[in-house]
Design a protein around this nucleic acid. Structure first.
Lengths: 300, 300
DNA sequence: GGGAGCTATAAGCTCGACCTATGGAGCGGT
DNA sequence: ACCGCTCCATAGGTCGAGCTTATAGCTCCC
């Protein structure tokens, strides 16, 4: 039984006559009549009794009608789903990102994406870089955003921008008078920064050495956002990425670090998996959102 | 999306390559390749990424695969149903049941049904519970009878009675003197019963523990009816459901087990499928037959 | 470099699905 | 009885889906 035969059978059952069923399906009456007769021939039993030029469903027709209706509805549903997929109106986009881009870039990207594709489910995972790579490999996320571009060969990394460092000062700190800080300003201060053997820690150390300054954090953190509480408690000055919207935290003041190293901002995807159309549209939005956020930073 | 395209898509997803899928469907590789390409053209998005001469499903393909499988299985079920209908003039009622109800309940239900509806074909399938569930899902049976009421959510289970355990003794056994046995009587005997990690085995073990008796079958069986041969051979005492008409087997004697657990007797149907009128009439007959059989047990 | 294994393309066939035009049966009104 | 209306079936022809065999191109492995 072909899908078309199913539709014709259902239309005749619902409409009661061949002519009305043909109108329902927007085809000619003889065409529908042919399909119906041919279907009965293939099935080996009649679906309708012809009595005085009219049709009456046989018990066999009544028997298979519920199944036919259910299947036909399922096929219609699948057709709708595929057209939604073609237009990028259905699906699920999962993005894994480290906390800074997750808080600074994804909200803007998701807002614009949602405005254009309200029926696509969005999911954001905030995770450290190693977890992001694992999720991309496992297919638990199709896109990633991280502040590192040195990644395993099976992960494709596209650098979409870069951002410098910021200094987070407790309120009332002596250095607040300066609008911009340098590494030299920080010599001798209690420092909160990334733990050793990570990329930002190495770059900071390298830059400090180049400028003849000795820096050694007295409090090491893993994710920049965890610095907030320590700075608020007056434990020192945090030297972290400038991407996170630090201004929104009370009890600390932000000052950019001049002449410091830069973080790359990378858009990640697994080379082993293809992106869906929805993923690709989200990727475009993330690129645009990143550019917009960096533009705001440059202006400020 | 035509039915054939659905089949081709599923075959390629399952087989992994076009060539293997073509073998599965018994058509040539170019034919299947054409259908697949044409399907992608019609859908407007690609289902498989061609990389190094191999296929890899896109996220869209993964998204629609479950629906496609469900629909295709439904179509297959309908095709089977129509061929069944061709052979049976006025309808067909198919009941899948585990062996005990199939032998104890269905004969009576079928007898009364046949008397009232002589033109409806009847078919009984004796099968283990997992196969019954599969048949209900696929539409290969519309009703099921099993001795378990813990079933998947897409299967409707109506408990229509319950039955205890019976002990099957070899002729000449010492315990024959008792008209009724308890779990304590069986301690130390060679036992034949359900294998571990099945529901009846667990319930027996639980009841034995509650009564302070240690029971451990030395011969494990899957379906109770297979105990007959072992008891006849003198391998021990079987502890099985009391529903099967054990009396009709020569070479063994039945004694009820008192204070033991009970099996539920459940009438099953797929929630996803409507019952035909004939199915509903058969369901009524099965309920009545079950009540009658259980009534005989109570009297005896 | 050559063979094995895979996918895609080409040319040609059959048949299902559609069209328009027409035949023929039942039914009610005059 | 005849006419007109409504309904289903048949005839003849077009188009495309689905299939075949033959063949070409790509990748991997020995």
């Amino acid at each position: 039984m072909r899908a078309r035969q199913l539709e014709v059978f259902i239309a005749v059952m619902r409409a009661g006559t061949v002519t009305a069923a043909a109108r329902m399906l927007n085809i000619s009456q003889p065409a529908l009549s042919q399909i119906l007769l041919h279907t009965e021939d293939e099935l080996g039993f009649t679906l309708f009794e012809r009595v005085k030029g009219r049709l009456r469903p046989t018990p066999e027709a009544l028997e298979i009608f519920p199944d036919a209706e259910r299947l036909s509805a399922g096929l219609d549903g699948l057709r709708r789903k595929t057209t939604d997929l073609r237009l990028g109106r259905a699906g699920l986009v999962r993005v894994a990102a480290s906390p800074p881009p997750a808080m600074a870039i994804l909200p803007r990207a998701f807002t614009r994406f949602r405005a254009q594709h309200p029926n696509i489910l969005l999911r954001s995972h905030s995770a450290p870089i190693a977890a992001i790579v694992d999720m991309l490999r496992a297919g638990d996320a199709s896109l990633g955003v991280a502040m590192d571009d040195r990644l395993p060969p099976d992960v494709e990394a596209e650098v979409i921008g870069s951002i410098g460092f910021a200094c987070l000062l407790p309120t009332g700190h002596a250095l607040l008078g300066k609008a911009e800080l340098t590494l030299a300003d920080l010599a001798g201060e209690e420092l909160i920064s990334y733990r050793g053997n990570t990329r930002p820690a190495d770059e900071l150390a390298h830059a400090a050495r180049a400028q003849g300054v000795a820096l050694s954090p007295s409090l090491e953190i893993d994710a920049s956002i965890s610095a907030v509480g320590f700075v608020q408690a007056g434990l020192g000055i945090a030297l972290v990425d400038a991407l996170l919207p630090w201004q929104q935290f009370a009890g600390l003041v932000v000052r950019p670090l001049s002449a410091g190293p830069e973080f790359p901002i990378a858009l990640l995807a697994s080379r082993a998996r293809a992106l869906s159309r929805a993923d690709e549209m989200m990727r475009d939005e993330i690129r645009a959102a990143c550019a917009a956020v960096l533009g705001q930073h440059a202006k400020a």
